[in-house]
Amino acid sequence: RDEDEKEKIKEALKRGNEDKAKEIAKRANVSPEEYERLRKEAE
């Protein structure tokens, strides 16, 4: 379940949809550090 959320965040970031990614991260309680890591992976 947690991994699904992280995949959704990465997908949103790949599409350049940072607002959606942040919204998912907030809902999934993803830490800022984890969010940054996902953002780097998505580049």
Rank of each mutant, 00 (worst) to 15 (best):
E43R: 10
A28D: 03
I9A: 02
K14G: 05
E33K: 06
L38V: 03
E41N: 04
A28G: 07
D4Y: 12
R1P: 14
E34C: 05
Y35W: 09
N29R: 09
E7A: 14
K20N: 07
A21K: 00
A42Q: 05
E18S: 08
V30Y: 05
K14T: 06
A12V: 02
E5K: 07
I24N: 02
I24H: 04
K22D: 04
K6P: 04
D19I: 12
K6Q: 08
E5I: 15
Y35V: 04
P32R: 10
K6I: 15
K10W: 04
A28V: 07
D4M: 12
I9R: 00
A21F: 01
R37Y: 06
K40H: 13
R15C: 07
N29G: 15
K14E: 04
K14V: 08
E3D: 14
K26L: 13
A25Y: 01
K8H: 08
P32M: 11
I24P: 01
S31Q: 06
D2A: 12
V30I: 15
A42I: 12
D2W: 14
E43S: 09
K10S: 03
E33D: 09
S31K: 06
L13T: 01
L13M: 08
R27K: 12
E41K: 05
V30E: 01
E7R: 14
E18C: 09
K40I: 14
E11L: 10
A25R: 03
K40M: 14
E33R: 05
E11R: 09
R1H: 14
K20A: 14
D19E: 15
E5G: 06
E43G: 08
K22I: 11
K20R: 13
R15S: 14
E36I: 05
E5V: 15
L13W: 03
K8N: 09
D4W: 13
S31G: 12
A12H: 11
E3Q: 13
K40D: 09
N17F: 13
Y35I: 03
E11I: 08
E23F: 04
A25G: 03
K22N: 06
P32H: 10
E33Q: 09
K14A: 09
A25V: 03
A12I: 03
N17Q: 14
E43V: 11
K14R: 15
R27C: 05
A28P: 01
K22M: 13
E5Q: 12
I24M: 06
G16E: 03
I24G: 02
E3C: 09
A21Q: 00
S31H: 05
N17M: 12
D19T: 13
K26Q: 13
E11T: 07
E3H: 13
K10C: 08
E43A: 12
K20L: 15
E11D: 12
D19W: 10
A21Y: 00
A21C: 03
A12W: 13
E33H: 06
K26Y: 08
E18P: 08
E3R: 12
E23H: 05
E33G: 07
R39W: 05
E41H: 04
E33V: 07
E7P: 04
E3K: 12
K20Y: 14
D19F: 09
R37F: 06
R37V: 07
P32W: 12
A12R: 02
K20H: 11
E33S: 08
L13I: 11
D2K: 11
K22E: 07
A25E: 01
K40R: 15
K40G: 09
N29Y: 05
N17S: 06
K22T: 07
E7K: 14
I9Q: 01
R15L: 14
K40L: 14
A12L: 13
E5P: 15
K8E: 10
A25H: 01
R37I: 08
D4I: 12
R15V: 11
K26E: 11
N29T: 04
A21S: 02
A42L: 09
P32T: 09
L38K: 00
N29S: 08
A12K: 02
E36H: 04
L13H: 02
G16C: 04
N29D: 08
A42F: 07
E43Y: 15
K6N: 09
K20M: 15
K20G: 09
R1C: 10
Y35D: 00
R37H: 06
E11M: 10
E33P: 04
R39E: 04
Y35F: 15
D4F: 10
E34I: 04
A28E: 05
E33T: 08
R37L: 08
D4P: 08
R27W: 05
R1V: 15
A42S: 08
K20S: 09
K10F: 06
K8M: 14
L13K: 00
A28L: 15
E11C: 13
E23L: 06
D4T: 12
E34Y: 02
E43H: 11
E5H: 15
K14H: 07
K14Y: 05
E34L: 04
E23C: 08
K10Y: 05
E18G: 06
K26F: 08
N17I: 03
A25S: 04
P32C: 06
E43C: 09
A12D: 02
E7F: 13
E18T: 11
V30F: 07
R37K: 10
E7N: 12
Y35E: 00
K6D: 05
E18A: 09
L38Q: 01
V30S: 01
E11G: 08
I24D: 02
E43M: 15
A42K: 02
E18Q: 09
R39Q: 06
I24Q: 03
K20F: 13
N17K: 08
L13N: 00
K22F: 07
K8T: 07
E23I: 08
E34A: 04
D4V: 12
E43W: 15
R15H: 13
A12C: 05
P32L: 11
D4R: 12
E41R: 06
N17E: 15
R39Y: 05
S31D: 09
G16P: 02
R37E: 08
L38W: 04
R15D: 11
K22W: 10
I24V: 05
E3P: 11
E43F: 15
K26P: 01
E18D: 08
K20T: 10
A42D: 02
R27G: 08
Y35C: 02
